[in-house]
Design a protein around this nucleic acid. Structure first.
Ligand code: SF4
Ligand code: SF4
Lengths: 135, 135
DNA sequence: ACAAAAAGGACTGATTTAGTCTGACATTAA
DNA sequence: TTAATGTCAGACTAAATCAGTCCTTTTTGT
């Protein structure tokens, strides 16, 4: 269906939120959750993913929270989405070393290469759009 | 996950198959199914969808089958994919008259407009790639 | 000590996908 | 006329994925 997952959307919303209030310290998961009506547990998980991918940093304990690890003009949408979305590919055979293990049609498929080109163009869209551009 | 459905892939494969042998009459669902190892019933359904969207024409009965309705340089990938994929949008709020009925976050969402721009760029990729370019 | 907040795992219900089955209906060659 | 070929169409199932919840642990400031 070529749809972004909710997690990806929440990640973008959270990143935008942090970017907007970046100067004034940490943002908590609760804060973001309430601000955008997103389930707390879900946004918390998403934020953890962002930390794992070095897009955000976290501080535990009272007065803790999350904050962007880099400037908004140094974070692309693809960074944010890849942090939460395991498999950001339009088809199953787009890994570096894909084989018939990834797709049973691998050997007789005639649309692999054209779709790889399409994939490159889509990646380009998400790579070239920076967080600062969606603020 | 931003993945194309198998139906979309099969539609592309079938369209390419027909484009390649267009001069020599009709292609049957069975023929395409065997050629690419796709389940017969599925590819048959996909071909029916292509007919419904005026991308292919069908002939019933003995010696019948499917054939492209237009030249391959007049069919874009988005035509083919839209024929089988009901909603080809990255998020739920991209209809012309979207409202909070489409997405509960509609009112407080701050990433709607940026994502609409992304959507436009992705549509552009699929619109500008023509069937003739993937032969 | 206590409360706030992140970290992380297990689990469930709902939705979507991929594929199957079955039964029409239309065309044509023999 | 009839049998074979082939499209058309809908219901159905199993598996995968998604979205969301629950629960426990760890860390930290007051
Ligand atoms: S090999 Fe072909 S059918 Fe298989 S995933 Fe790649 S493009 Fe799709
Ligand atoms: S309104 Fe916002 S959250 Fe809802 S679908 Fe659109 S972009 Fe996603």
């Amino acid at each position: 269906m070529l749809k972004l997952s909710k997690k990806a959307e929440y990640a973008l919303m959270a990143a935008k939120y942090m970017a907007l209030k970046n100067h004034s310290g940490f943002s908590t998961a609760k804060e973001i959750s309430e601000s955008y009506q997103i389930p707390y547990q879900l946004v918390a998980k998403v934020l953890q993913n962002l930390v794992k991918s070095d897009i955000a940093v976290s501080a535990k304990g009272v007065n803790g929270g999350f904050s962007l690890a880099r400037k908004a003009n140094n974070i692309s949408l693809i960074d944010i989405i890849r942090a939460v979305e395991t498999n950001f590919k339009i088809v199953d055979c787009m890994q570096l070393n894909s084989s018939s293990a990834d797709c049973e049609h691998f050997d007789c498929c005639k649309i692999k290469d054209p779709l790889a080109e399409v994939q490159r163009k889509i990646d380009k869209v998400f790579t070239e759009t920076l967080l600062v551009q969606i603020l």
